[in-house]
Amino acid sequence: MKRILTRPLTILLAIVASVVPATAALAATNGPIFRAAEYVGQENTNTETNLDFLFAIYIITWAGFFTYIFIVSRRQRTMERDIKALKQLLSQQQGTGRASSAE
């Protein structure tokens, strides 16, 4: 159950966090994100140049977080698989040991 919900939520979060800044950057000149800027009457904003930097900051941050979360969850899955296999092997070995000592 937890995996059913966790993975889609992580993917959704990844998509949204990547798409929102990208859309914002594409909608640069007249997009809604600059509506607020009109009210404060900015004078010294080099919108064209600075947007690339802003875009890079958001992409790198979210890519970094999602890569890390992905690596950690993959490692956890591998570990759980190994633990299960080892436990099975150990119980088999113990079963064999008991049988041979009984003989």
Binding site: L9, T10, V16, P21, I33, A36, Q42, N46, L54
Partner: peptide, 28 residues
């Protein structure tokens, strides 16, 4: 994770839609 996802979405909306742009530094 669901709470975090909600907070992140709210933050992104606030950053790109709600908060005004700073006068001197601009969008960056």
């Amino acid at each position: 994770l669901a709470i975090t996802a909600g907070l992140v979405l709210l933050t992104l909306w606030m950053i790109f839609e709600w908060v005004p742009t700073e006068r001197n530094l601009g969008v960056v």
